[in-house]
Design a binder for these strands. Structure first.
Lengths: 210, 210, 210, 210
DNA sequence: ACTCCCGGGACGGCCCGTTTCT
DNA sequence: AGAAACGGGCCGTCCCGGGAGT
């Protein structure tokens, strides 16, 4: 019972993510979704009462990922700057490899088409980044005079912009390189010399500046 | 005759931009557009043979803006670095003030829903930026070892990301400040000390780093 | 154009009446209606924004008939008792001959499925009957002690019941005979001897009592 | 086991009657029915193979009532005229108090939506009434020249019409008074003077005619 | 020349009446 | 007897042509 049901649910959710990611919320028909994996319309309706609910489920699926990621990485990297760096890499990797993540991101950006139940985009990322920047300052890695709030927004913005661009150019090909480039540009304006030289080797990939 | 016709055309185009910008291509019905300004469906179909054509017209309207902007600004700022900076400010201003521009940007991002007649997003911006970076290098302003292609993409990415974020947080409120923040972060990794100190005062707004 | 439009509207309205009358509101699909006369769904949608609106239009069409009927008959029959009699015959005749009337009656009975915009059934008939009974009393035709309100309801009830029954037995065959039977039963309890003998010949049809 | 099963069956049947009575056959979804009492769809389909079967079961439940009623009342009232009178009162009472009866009546009227297995409405009532009228004639209570068939139909029609009307006006409030009114109007045209004066006190309620 | 009324199909999302697995 | 899945149909309405009107 429960096993088959939850498998069907996952199949539907995956097909939905696939289609939502490719075409967006409004241009996706439920027909597209059910045809993709051969499930029936009734099965969809059984698990999700509406298109909106399906989209929200996709978003939730992808949102539930972040706490897991952060608790997995945090013990490994006590230094907040390093943690941010690895976090961004992990997010980039997930974006590259998981349709669910990409779909979730896209749907969140289209939240005004779906409903207020979808969380606002970026805000959780920004606050998380701001928090980590605060830790970095306490750890003495930051340059003096860095405006935490604006910097957090800038980091998230660059990152988001990169995701969008790399999706257009080469299908999620060099996103890891993009992240390196980003940090190469950001770190000099963010951390002090000691930290910078320590981090240098981590973002040495042949990008931005050799 | 022709005068009224072309005015109707503009009215339709504007209403289309308004709606496309707010809801995206797929979620916009032609009914929404014609109801917005009270024109009739027949009038719409006289000027634009299809929804796609209408969207393309909006995109074109906004694309025709860039050459005009660049030819207007270029003579004023012979130094390429400065030109890039002012250009980005102008683009941010236009995004803030013109629905047509915002609609064009959104539609371009949704080009796969509309048709191949819509130009790919970012590419023209990236090549333009890369070109300007090349000029900057010839003018001796760039740091050695900057990878032009990656840097161009990074700049455009940050910029695009910021547009998206500022739209979410505060309705296009502080986008000028965002641009300053961006350049404060980017310039130190991009230009040499002389140029940096000359540009410093231009991006002094209390953001990123004081 | 206007001519074609109004013709299409009438065709749709008629097809709707046909189907509503046969199957009721809930069991009628718009598909049934448009297929009946070969009009398209778009045509239907143009004239009627919803199924509910279509039903309401049918009801209204049939409601607009009664004032016309009453103003046509009243001058011919100054005596209220006689007017009631002829009115009931006319209504029976219309029920027999006009789908629109039958559909209207059925839809009114199903008003709780359709919406509050549909008028409540019977009430207008009852008040009209009550009014005519009042006139009859003033004309000295009524027996003493007749309760106007209850009698009006009884008359309408009998009449409505007969419509329903005759629909079941023989497709609207002998409804005129039914009306005669009804009055033969009702008049002796309603009007005084003089009036009764004057009316007798009008309801002499071989029914109820020879 | 059997006890629980048959109780579930009754619960479903009752819920079905409730919903069918309120919304009619076509507008009632099985979902509505099972949700009303919290039973599962599986349970419904265990007891009733289809929606049609469920409706038929409701109708049968209500049809099985009449023989019981008639065998209960007949010995008490040997005089056929009196029996008809009391029968009509009992039916009115049942209509007022039992959802099952009301639902059965409504479903029977919608038999063409359900299927030929549902009995035709009125016919059994009419034949029963006709039979009782025959008995009355043999008992010497009827006026000469009464057309039994037409009179039977008139009686049933008035009765049915009253049920419908009283449902609209006041939720099954004064249906007993309605029955009195009906007989006050009908009896003078039906029975002879002796019988009439004997029955008078039974229908004396302040209605129709004092 | 330009506008608009009117009509045409085709899905869209929702949900319904039913079986099939447990 | 219940959980799960199945198609199909309903209403809304969308994007769009042709013909009448000005």
């Amino acid at each position: 019972m429960q096993e088959r049901a939850s498998r069907t649910r996952r199949v539907i959710l995956h097909a939905a993510a696939e289609t939502f990611e490719a075409r967006g919320y409004a241009a996706t028909s439920l027909r597209d979704i059910v045809d993709l994996e051969g499930v029936s319309k009734g099965a969809l309706y059984f698990h999700f009462p509406s298109k909106e609910a399906l989209a929200i489920a996709v978003v939730k699926e992808h949102y539930d990922l972040w706490p897991e990621v952060i608790t997995r990485l945090r013990p490994r990297y006590p230094r907040a700057v390093r943690l941010m760096l690895e976090l961004s890499r992990e997010v980039a990797r997930l974006s590259r490899e998981s349709v669910m993540v990409r779909a979730g991101i896209r749907l969140v950006l289209e939240r005004n088409l779906i409903g207020p139940a979808v969380p606002r985009p970026f805000v959780s990322w920004i606050t998380a980044t701001e928090m980590l920047l605060g830790e970095s300052r306490e750890q003495g890695d930051l340059l003096p005079g860095v405006d935490l709030e604006n910097m957090a927004r800038f980091i998230v913005a660059s990152f988001a912009g990169f995701q969008q661009i790399s999706e257009v150019r080469n299908r999620h090909g060099d996103s890891s390189q993009c992240v390196n480039t980003m940090w190469q540009c950001v770190l000099p304006s963010l951390v002090n010399g000691d930290c910078l030289s320590e981090m240098a080797s981590l973002v040495h990939g042949a990008s931005g500046r050799s």
